[in-house]
Design a protein around this nucleic acid. Sequence first.
DNA 1: CGTATGCTCAAACGATCGTTTGAAATGTCC
DNA 2: GGACATTTCAAACGATCGTTTGAGCATACG
Lengths: 204, 204
Amino acid sequence: MTTTSSTRDRILGAAEQLFAQRGFDGASLRQLTAAAGVNLAAVNYHFGSKEKLVEEVFRRRLDALNADRLAALAQLGNDHSASLEQVLAAYIRPALELSHEGNGTLFMRVLARAFAEHDDTLRRFLSENYGHVMRQFTAEFAYLLPHLSKPELYWRIDLVTGALTHAMSGFGMIQRKDDVSEQAHREQTVQHLIRFAAAGLSHP
Amino acid sequence: MTTTSSTRDRILGAAEQLFAQRGFDGASLRQLTAAAGVNLAAVNYHFGSKEKLVEEVFRRRLDALNADRLAALAQLGNDHSASLEQVLAAYIRPALELSHEGNGTLFMRVLARAFAEHDDTLRRFLSENYGHVMRQFTAEFAYLLPHLSKPELYWRIDLVTGALTHAMSGFGMIQRKDDVSEQAHREQTVQHLIRFAAAGLSHP
DNA sequence: CGTATGCTCAAACGATCGTTTGAAATGTCC
DNA sequence: GGACATTTCAAACGATCGTTTGAGCATACG
């Protein structure tokens, strides 16, 4: 394998953008390869099929995102001394930081689409590869919210997930004022989401 | 126009089901007309185009849904004596009742898809036809939550909308136990959603 | 140099898409 | 019953889709 992986990366970048804009079906390989400046056949050569390309788009971002989330959670220690807000921060902040580095926002839109489309193949792929992260956070929430029954907890986590995915896909993202730095604005948004999620999870 | 609107209705029913399952692009007119038991050309004859059919699927359900919502809101009186929970009930209950009458759940999935797909044409259609309902509820929320700035309020309403749409699209719907009646279960779910939304909206 | 090996390219494959057409069937009204 | 409008139907239209093919190009290695 030579270092000519530039074609692969250009395809992945263009795929992320077009999948976010037009959906997995809506974005054709011809549009995609034209935007990437590569030959049409390059997708099937490098990825095998369009479906495999979709999975690779997810893998590239989610590997990094979930590694960050687990690292943030681990940093809180395993002695159950962390607060609900701290655990939520470990879950939310990496997603928002991702969405502010090159084209990350587009990926959150791709993710929101994947949730809305009840595609079983994609579901299974996400569950098999990244389910352990969700399980680890759920265990923390269960410890922090002992007054909730298991179905009640799952139900609330699902609602929070829906809210966060919806928000971070940029649908109604608060616009940054000119007198606020990008970094400060992001921290502000993180605090908004944390407080909203904490209220929804822990209300009596 | 004769009463042979059975073809029209069969198309609309099959469209709702297939759009929910495979998306607007994923569901072809050939699958759709085959499921409805009508001729392929019937869609373009009765609706003009596939896009017009999509709009008609939305119109049929949303007209009823939003009429119910406004009626429930009006029933609370216009003297601002209603509680936050009552206003939320006026917004949430009609949606859940819709989702429990024939194929209504499927429509909520269609709606969730429409939110995830950032299709501008569909956005504008929804905003132009049903924006006044959202505006009326927002005004009520603003009165009930005077401690929130306008951006803060919009931001929270958006998060709540995301959570509700996600939940009602059936993605993580709580399963009804056998010893609970359908009606009791629905009322239980309504209360869950109301309390979650109230906590997310009104937290300090 | 010769020959593998990894990669790119233009061209074509069969399939499926939304839409249109014109004739046949059905219903409506005097 | 005949004239007219409405609705259904099979067939075809051009366009676009994901994928495959086989030749051409580059680089690496003996």
